[in-house]
């Protein structure tokens, strides 16, 4: 059996940019994002897939970075909260979260935002019920979800307007 390599060298497409990364092979994408790429916007609440705080978009799909092997992400597109704004202009979801009480402590916010982004990228014409379903894998302990749903609804309306 070949010896386990000390480090893995790969290239990711992180928030639209090619980024070379090097990390110990046992690391999850969460650990590599936070510890090797200093993208600490992605949070962790359990590291076992039980809270949704670490959700990022991998090839556009919301997935949990805590249960994604970093070495399986070579060449993949990874979107994190850091890449959501266009320059200094907030994504409609970010603005709506800030304006409608979608963030209190802000700890679940990055995972919520990325999950909501995937939802609205697919279809900005969503009901409150669909929003609740989409974010039902993201725990929040502050808001009771209502203002998060308000924020996503509001952003969806704005995105619908922008598409017209």
């Amino acid at each position: 059996m070949a010896a386990i390599p000390e480090r893995v060298h790969l290239t990711y497409l992180v928030n639209g940019e090619e980024v070379p990364v090097s990390f110990a092979p046992y690391k999850t994408l969460l650990e590599v994002l936070r510890e090797d790429l200093n993208l600490t916007g992605t949070k962790h609440g359990c590291e076992l897939g039980e809270c949704g705080a670490c959700a990022v978009l991998i090839d556009g799909e919301p997935k949990l970075s805590c249960l994604t092997l970093a070495l399986e992400c070579g060449g993949r597109s990874i979107q994190t909260v850091e890449g959501l704004a266009q320059g200094t202009t907030l994504h409609p979801l970010q603005a709506a979260f800030a304006d409608h009480g979608g963030s209190q402590c802000g700890y679940c916010t990055p995972g919520m935002l990325m999950t909501a982004k995937a939802l609205l990228d697919g279809n900005p014409n969503v009901s409150r019920e669909q929003i609740k379903q989409a974010i039902s894998g993201n725990l929040c302990r502050c808001t009771g979800y209502q203002q998060i749903v308000d924020a996503i609804e509001s952003a969806a309306a704005e995105m619908r307007g922008a598409r017209k």
Binding site: P62, L67, T115, Q133, S136, G137
Partner: peptide
Amino acid sequence: IATAHLRNM
């Protein structure tokens, strides 16, 4: 099963 994220995985 589980959550939307976990079903994506």
